[in-house]
Design a protein around this nucleic acid. Sequence first.
DNA 1: TTATCATATGAATAGATGTTCATATGTTCA
DNA 2: TGAACATATGAACATCTATTCATATGATAA
Lengths: 121, 121
Amino acid sequence: MISPDLIIDKCDFLCVHEDAVQEVLSSMPADEKLYDLAELFKVFGDSTRIKILYALFERELCVCDISNLLGLSQTAVSHQLRILKANKLVKSRRSGKIVFYALDDDHVYKIIDCGMEHINE
Amino acid sequence: MISPDLIIDKCDFLCVHEDAVQEVLSSMPADEKLYDLAELFKVFGDSTRIKILYALFERELCVCDISNLLGLSQTAVSHQLRILKANKLVKSRRSGKIVFYALDDDHVYKIIDCGMEHINE
DNA sequence: TTATCATATGAATAGATGTTCATATGTTCA
DNA sequence: TGAACATATGAACATCTATTCATATGATAA
C-alpha cells in the first residue's frame, strides 16, 4: 500500500523499519471503514442533531414537537431528521398526518455518553 | 425558556401539555454542553483525524511517521494534530527535532469502538 | 372535492472546514 | 555560526454543510 520509495530520505525513526510500519498498518481497519466511521461521527458533530437526539432520549416526538421544544424551524428539523434516519440513528412511524420519530439504536446512548464523559473532565 | 405563545396553535400532541414539555426539557443538558459535545464529535468526523488516531492506537508516532504511514502531507497532519491536541485527544512530547504524539485519553478508544459497533451492524 | 394541517424536498445562500503553498520556528550537527 | 531537518503556522482556495425560502406531498375533516 505504501511504497518503500515514499518513506526513504525522511525522518528515520519508524520509517525505515518495515516491520514497525506493518505493525501499525496491519492494525488499521480498511480505508472504507474509517471513512464510514468519520461519516457517522459527522452526524453527531452538529448541535442541532445532538439536541434532537437528546429530546428523543425521553420519548418519541413528532416533527412539530421537536421544532417547538428546541425553537427550530420545521424545515430545519425535517432536514436533520432525514440525515439521522439515513444513518439509522432514528426511526419514524406515521400516525395520520403526524410522523413520530424515535431513537433507532442503543449505540446512540453509548456514543453520546462516551462523548459526555470526555467533556466533563 | 420556551414561551407558551410559541407552542400554541401548532400540532396538539405534546405542545399543549406543559408537564410533558418540562419532562423533556428538564432532562436536556445545558445548551453549552450540547454545543461542546457536538464540537467534540466534529473532531472525530474527519477521516484524516480518524486515521491518525487509529495509527496512534499502536504506539506513539512522530509527525513524519504519521505523514508517511498515511500518505498525507506533513502540513495537513500538523494542522490536524493541532486540532486533536486542542481537544485533548492527543498529547505531544519533544525529543530533539522530533515531536512525538500519543493518545491522551482512554475515551478515544471507547468513543471509536462505540462508533465501530454501529457501523458493523 | 376542497381547505387545512403536518411533513418533506429542492434550490439558493452563507458560513465552516480541510488542504495546499509559502514561510516561520526550533533543534541538531558540522 | 550556518546548513539541514522536523514541525508549526498563516493565508488562500475549494469543498462541504446547515439553514432558509418556496413549494410539493400526504392525510384529515368538512
